[in-house]
Amino acid sequence: MSTAVMDKAEAEAKGPASHLITVTLRIRRYNSEVSDEPWWDDFQVDVDPKDRVLDVLHTIKWEHDGTLTFRRSCAHGICGSDAMRINGRNRLACKTLIKDIGPEKPISVEPIKGLAVLKDLVVDMEPFFQAYRDVMPFLVTTGNEPTRERLQSAEDRERFDDTTKCILCAACTSSCPVFWNDGQYFGPAAIVNAHRFIFDSRDEAGEQRLEILNDKDGVWRCRTVFNCTDACPRGIQVTKAIQEVKRALITRRF
């Protein structure tokens, strides 16, 4: 009987055809095995308006063009694999519903900017992760370890809560015009992850991290454009975090 129920749920999930709308996805393609130049492909697909952009990309890959290439894993906004530029704005494909992005017009899907495109929507993440690794993204302590946990007040824990949410999807960094123009800038995500430790009361390497970010390619390159905050799928106040790091550099208080 559970079987019958599941069948019904499934039938309803697919929905009567009248729920479906036809959308056009205009996808930026690149495949060095086919051509040196990128190109655009249009795909018309029948979708449920409540579908995620990722669902539609899957439909295209599975039903129309198996060569369409993108990264994805968890499909609900936690793993950070599927950041892409959708209608000109950086988003996670699995957290963006078709109904919310104007499906009556063609929906453009491009790889995130500022990182080399390897194939279709897949970019080279290495420079992004290198910047992350460069800010010492780990807790540094000295002295004897306590037997039990280190104590931390709820207020001290709250101080850096926002920046612990980062999933390293690169939506912020690859929305930053400074990063587009200058591959040397650490970028918002690395600064967010430095912030996460600079403002952790247990950590003892805040000064070192600040010196790293005081570099010419560090935090001062930020022009406070707020693209990063708009792009963050986790709702992190990225620009605010960057400003707090700047302030800490001036006051040396954190």
Partner: peptide, 19 residues
């Protein structure tokens, strides 16, 4: 759990500051 806390894991805290 204590190892993870020492590695930096930001657990929620009690009013006494414990995990």
């Amino acid at each position: 759990v204590l190892d993870l806390e020492k590695m930096g894991l930001p657990f929620n805290r009690t009013p006494q500051g414990k995990i």
